[in-house]
């Protein structure tokens, strides 16, 4: 069952006195219940903006976001609409994802209150994310980054979301914690029947946990497909480059030298295919027209 549909989404960041930054420029994506979708791409390509739009934290400039059949409306000063409480997010920075002044038990209890769950306790959730019961009375500064992300996951899961979003929840953790936290997130989401949109610039982790991969470049999804298929047979030149870069991935979300050039400024994207200035196989048509088709947005893979 399709849980989330993002259709032709455009999100612009406007800063007074500067040109609008089109961080998401016509992206499409679906997530089904029980499915784990890995969203990958270099930093600055618009992954966080897409995730925030799905939560309603930034308004869409155009396009549609549908969650469980209803539209996602941007969150203003009013309380979040009940129908949207089923979307929860785990953020990137473990050092600002928890309120430093409140006990973690109270913060997890906020999640339980959303689900109206009176039988589960914060201790149960701590246990579920692999932390000892009895830590509820502690404050966030008593925990490591990896532990904090587990607590943030516990708080999000306590709300029994139908869709869990992780916006690079592991990229600030050390290598040993990364895979553990990622698999934990997958297990907990899938076993509760929720969909998981897992954002990362690290393909090697996404490969382990995602059922399907969506590759994002400069505000657009350029290729989607089942993880194994994309892994074995990447079709978009950008996906190929990303996969080729894995052994040397520097963890900072930048591609090594094999792929020439930097990510262009999203305020002033190149005409035609947005990837053509960096593409090793660019053709004339790539400079002239934008390839607007799925599942591979590339003129080499134009559907018949």
């Amino acid at each position: 069952m399709t849980l989330l549909t993002v259709d032709d989404l455009v999100v612009e960041h406007r800063t007074p006195g500067r040109p609008a930054v089109r961080a998401v420029a016509g992206a499409g994506l679906t997530v089904s219940s029980g499915e784990v979708v890995g969203l990958v791409g270099e930093s600055g390509c618009g992954k966080s903006t897409l995730a925030r739009a799905v939560c309603g934290l930034v308004p869409a400039t155009s396009g549609n976001i549908t969650f469980q059949g209803g539209p996602v409306r941007p969150l203003g000063l009013r309380r979040r609409h009940r129908s949207l409480l089923g979307i929860q997010m785990v953020f990137q920075d473990p050092y600002s994802s928890l309120n430093p002044r409140r006990k973690i038990g109270a913060q997890i209890a906020d999640g339980l209150a959303v689900a109206g769950d009176t039988t589960t306790t914060p201790a149960d959730l701590l246990e579920r994310v692999g932390l000892p019961r009895g830590f509820e009375g502690r404050h966030p500064h008593e925990f490591s980054g990896g532990q904090r992300q587990r607590i943030a996951i516990a708080r999000a899961l306590a709300a029994r979301p139908a869709l869990l979003i992780g916006d690079e929840p592991i990229s600030a953790l050390d290598a040993s914690a990364q895979a553990k936290v990622a698999t934990l997130m997958r297990e907990l989401a899938v076993s509760s029947g929720a969909g998981l949109l897992f954002i990362s610039h690290d393909l090697s982790v996404v490969r382990i946990i995602a059922d399907r991969i969506a590759v994002m470049y400069l505000g657009k999804i350029v290729e989607t497909g089942p993880t194994a298929e994309v892994w074995a047979n990447p079709r978009h030149p950008y996906t190929k480059a990303l996969l080729g870069a894995i052994p040397a991935a520097d963890g900072a979300g930048h591609l090594p030298a094999e792929l020439a050039g930097d990510v262009p400024d999203p305020a002033d994207p190149p005409g035609g295919c947005r990837f053509h200035p960096r593409c090793p196989v660019a053709m004339d048509v790539c400079r002239a027209k934008e390839p607007d088709f799925t599942p591979v947005a590339c003129w080499l893979h134009e559907p018949a």
Binding site: R80, M89, F91, S96, S97, L98, R155
Partner: peptide, 15 residues
């Protein structure tokens, strides 16, 4: 704009 404040809003906190 801090992430824990946003998390609270996502959990349905009123302003």
């Amino acid at each position: 704009e801090r992430e824990f404040v946003l998390s609270g809003r996502l959990l349905g906190f009123s302003a």
